[in-house]
Each structure stands twice: as structure tokens, then as C-alpha cells.
Design a protein around this nucleic acid. Structure first.
Lengths: 249, 249
DNA sequence: ATATATTTTGCTGTTTTTTGCAATTTTAAA
DNA sequence: TTTAAAATTGCAAAAAACAGCAAAATATAT
């Protein structure tokens, strides 16, 4: 295999998942980890990606949620997404939030599934548009440069005029007592509108975010109808949430 | 075997597989590896492929795979985009259409320029969101899978409520007599709304599209205030347009 | 046709690049 | 703090590139 090939595969993987683990790539390409490490170092020097401890992340991703995002959590997010797709019924009308976990959900939507999807996220809309049987409706508004989602009064107004079966949302922080919270005020406002626009709200959150909180509150925990984490529903970490009238997958 | 023959086989292989290994080719053509090495060196010098350690890769290898930049008529589109950026004034409020030519315009927007940009295109919105001093507003609506732009009643309604200084638009076909035309009815409707929303409309079009027409009409040619092609304004191909009260760049 | 020049090709030894390994240092998580 | 994973460094083996040379093939001139 040519070096260029390998590096191209690296870039594709980074672009696809926003992040890679050196060990995973080394194993799947059957080369030593040192080789991958050197490749990543070169690509970083060429400004094609950003090297981080243990892996690499895409450039567009560096400034966005760097502190909020753990490159190791890819597997967890895929597990969550796999659970979430089981909720999708043919012909459903749903909303999909931005964020990497929701993005994994979108990638796992089977090609034969008929859906109508609303979203505020530009990357999600782009990815959805490749699904042949999904009708995509983008919610317009001012674009948040960090999150690449529509925010502001216009987005909220547009959301006020729709009603979907399910909303699949992410959150910055979640806690049984303080509910869903965010770092950013504008994002909270949009999320509130998203929740209001849905008959049922499904929260996708890696366990790492459980029992954490921040400045601004999106909603109480019992506003959420279903919570999906990568943990087993019986995990004792989820005990506090089990008393909140939430279905846990 | 003739040298030219061998080099043509090399190029075909590169085109077909995007990459070749010198050892493989040498073996399958039953010549020494040095010969292949020399061939590749020549072809590289002629810019027919790119020589790398151990083999060769096709010229578009790095670009085409990572970014989906359509290299078709790229040169011309960059020239057009360069002319278009000169129209951008600090603090302007503009609309940018979808399409590869408009995408090039976005890429050339200088980082220090303050702008407010409306767009119906998902890729344009994504690219714009990387510009630090550009406020991006995405016009929502149903997403056209082919064009990756918002179409439909909602998009048109949203456009009806804005008024920008300049609209930069592309078109499928343009003709002095038949005006701007498209293959797709829905896209025509959105473009009409875009033009209505702008004080001045700037058409970006490669010369290849001049004097071509299709089924559905967006607008008359004199609705356009400025037309930008990659040709010199004095080019005789533009003569027919010069009588239409259009500024030609 | 013959001799000469030019190009092409394969071979040899040398240099460079790539890659994997081991020892050590650094980093980050418990 | 402790500990495990990851990064770094130096090194050596293997693969590839390179330069120079000579033989073979082709072209050109006499």
C-alpha cells in the first residue's frame, strides 16, 4: 500500500467520523502504530487534520466542541445510534439535532427507510440528503459557527410551526436534578423550541455527560421521554434517572 | 512494446485505479522496474500523473477523494469568482446561490471582510461558517437532493421577507433571447424569489453556458444587472448581451 | 551498406526513504 | 500519586530511488 493511499484513507476516516483513534486505524490497515503516528504528524503539518493525544480530529471540529468532545467516545456514540435507529418507523416524521452522536444516527439510517426529517444542523442535512428515501427539511436561521446549526428568532419561529413524532436531540450536560443544560444561551433557546415541536423527545447522550451541569437550562429531566446511553439499562449509574418517568434504552 | 504504448497503459491504469505500484506494473509488462520508473518520471514531468514513493497516483487523487470539489471547468470558475469578489464591500448584505461557481466565490472571500450572507445552499452555508467575519443565515426549506439547496414554498416565503444589496446567482442555461432557464421547475421558483429579494442581481456563468436554453424560465436577461464570465468583456461572444443593459465583467 | 550518433533499456553499487522495534520520556486518567 | 497508555527518540532492516555505465535497439548520415 502506498503512503499516499494510507494518508487518504486517514483523511476520509477523519472527515467521516470527525475523529480517529491511531490504534484502530493501525489495526485495520495492518501497519504499525508508529507508521500511522508519522502519517498523522505529516498531515497535521500540512494542515489537513489536527493531531491530538491518541488520535486525530478534523479541522472543522477543533474549535467547535473541543473541550466537550472526547475522541475516545466514538464507539459509544455508535452504540447509542444503533439503539436509536430501532425507534425509527417507516413513514415517521422526525427531527434530528446537531452534534456528533446525532450524526452517527443519521449515518445508520437504512437506505430503504422512508422518513421525513427536519433538522437545524447543516452537516446533518447534508448527510441526510444522501439518503434516497428521506425527505429533508432544513430549518433556516442564523448559523452558529461553533455548532453549525441554525439559531436565533427565525429558527425558533420556524420550529414553532411544525410538530414531529420524535425529536432526537443531544445535550451538552445532563443531570437528574438540574436537567439538561448548555454552555450557550442561544442553543438553549433553539433546543426548547425543538422539544416543544415534538410529541416525544429522545435524548442521545454518552454516559460521560451524565451527572454534569452548566449555566443555562434547556429543560427538566422528566421532559425527556426516552434517554439513550451506551450503558446497559440496568447500569447503576442510571438509577437516578430511572425514577424520573423516563424510558431508558 | 513501444515506449508510448507502455506509457499509455500506465496512464490508463492510473486513471482506472487512481494508483499504481511500480513493482506490479513492471512485472505485468515484463520490463525492468527502472524502465517503469523512468516512464513515471517522464509522465510526472508532463503533469499526467503524480509520482510518489513506490508508485504513482492520479492527479485528482487527493482533491477528488477528500473534498468533493468538482474539477470540471474549475479554472474558469475561479476566474469568475475572482471578478465577483471585487464587488463585495465591507458591511454588505448579500445572497449567495448554490453551485460550484458560487462555491468558489465563497472560498475567495477574504477573512477580514465583514458580510451578512443569506444562502439556500447547504455547502455554501458550511463553507461560509468558517469565515470569521461573515454572519451566515441559512434559508430553510425542503432540500433538493441533487442541488443541495432549499426549495419549495417555505424557502420562497422566507426569501420574500428579506431584501439584500446583491444576489450572486448561477443558472443552468443563459441566452440573450430566452433569458435564464433551468431544467428543474422547483429551482426556477426559488431563483425567482432570490432575484425578487435583491436590489441588484449578479449572474455568474461560465461561457460554456452562454447561448443555451432549457424548459423553464427564471427571468429575462435584462433582469440581470451584472453578468460575470471568464471571458474578456470585449469578447465578441458577449456582443449579444451588451445590448441588454447589462454590466459585463 | 556501413559507420556513427542517439535512444532505450537493464544492471550495479550507493543513497534515500520508509517502516517496525525497543528504550525512554511524556501525558492523561484513576 | 500511581499507573497505564501514548509520544518520542534512536536505530536497523527492507524497500525504493538514483546515478553511472554498458549493451542493445533504433535512427541518421555518409
Amino acid at each position: 500500500m502506498l503512503k499516499e493511499e494510507r494518508q487518504q484513507i486517514l483523511l476520509n476516516e477523519v472527515e467521516l467520523h470527525n475523529r480517529i483513534l491511531l490504534t484502530d486505524i493501525a489495526e485495520s490497515l495492518d501497519v504499525s502504530i508508529d507508521t500511522i503516528r508519522r502519517d498523522v504528524k505529516e498531515l497535521d503539518a500540512e494542515n489537513k487534520l489536527k493531531k491530538v493525544h491518541g488520535g486525530a480530529i478534523s479541522l472543522g471540529f477543533t474549535n467547535s466542541n473541543s473541550r466537550n468532545t472526547n475522541i475516545y467516545a466514538l464507539e459509544e456514540k455508535v452504540i447509542i445510534a444503533q439503539k436509536a435507529v430501532t425507534l425509527l418507523k417507516d413513514g415517521a416524521v422526525i427531527f434530528i439535532d446537531g452534534g456528533t452522536t446525532c450524526m452517527e444516527l443519521v449515518r445508520l439510517i437504512p437506505d430503504n427507510l422512508n422518513l421525513t426529517c427536519f433538522t437545524i444542523s447543516l452537516p446533518v442535512a447534508m448527510e441526510l440528503s444522501h439518503k434516497p428515501n428521506v425527505t429533508v427539511i432544513s430549518i433556516g436561521g442564523q448559523i452558529s459557527k461553533e455548532a453549525q446549526i441554525s439559531i436565533g428568532a427565525n429558527a425558533i419561529h420556524n420550529l414553532s410551526e411544525i410538530r414531529v413524532d420524535y425529536s432526537f436531540i443531544g445535550t451538552g450536560y445532563v443531570d437528574a436534578v438540574y436537567g439538561l443544560t448548555e454552555f450557550d444561551w442561544d442553543i438553549v433557546q433553539v433546543k426548547k423550541a425543538v422539544i416543544k415541536a415534538a410529541k416525544k423527545t429522545v435524548l442521545l447522550s454518552i454516559s460521560e455527560k451524565l451527572n454534569s451541569q452548566h449555566r443555562y437550562k434547556t429543560c427538566d429531566i422528566n421532559t425527556i421521554n426516552t434517554m439513550i446511553t451506551e450503558l446497559e439499562p440496568s447500569d447503576r449509574m442510571l438509577e437516578v434517572f430511572r425514577n424520573c418517568d423516563i424510558r431508558i434504552l
